Simulated scan of single mutants.
Amino acid sequence: MKIVDSGDTEEEQEISESNGDDWLGIELLDGRLRLVSVQSDGSVKILDTPGHLHSLLYVASLEAAGWKALVQELEDLINSPKSAERDLHQFFERNPDFLCGDAYEEAKSHIVLQRDSDGPLIPDFALKPRNPNALCDLLELKLPKAKLLRVSKNRVRLTSAIMEACAQLREYQSYFDDVKKRVAVEETYGLRFFRPRMMVLIGKRSDYSASDLRSAESDVPNLSIVTYDDILERAKARLRRR
Rank of each mutant, 00 (worst) to 15 (best):
I231E: 07
L24M: 11
L74W: 06
D97Q: 12
E11M: 04
S209N: 12
Q39D: 09
A65Y: 02
R150H: 12
E106N: 13
G42V: 04
R242Q: 14
G20V: 08
V179A: 10
S18K: 12
V71I: 15
S55E: 12
I231K: 14
L28F: 07
M163H: 10
D30L: 09
L77M: 05
V112K: 13
P196I: 00
S43W: 14
P132G: 06
E63C: 02
R115G: 07
A126Y: 00
E63F: 04
Y228A: 04
V220P: 01
S224P: 01
E75P: 03
T49V: 06
L113F: 10
G190T: 04
H110K: 15
L148I: 09
E14S: 08
E85W: 02
D178W: 03
S83M: 01
G51Y: 07
S55C: 09
D178V: 00
A69E: 06
R182D: 06
G42F: 05
E75M: 04
Y175W: 11
N222F: 13
G31S: 10
A165K: 08
S211M: 02
I46N: 13
N154S: 14
N222Q: 10
D219Q: 15
K145I: 00
D230Y: 02
D219H: 12
Y175M: 08
L141S: 04
S152Q: 14
D41L: 05
V112P: 04
E171T: 11
F194A: 13
S18A: 12
E171W: 03
K147P: 02
T159V: 11
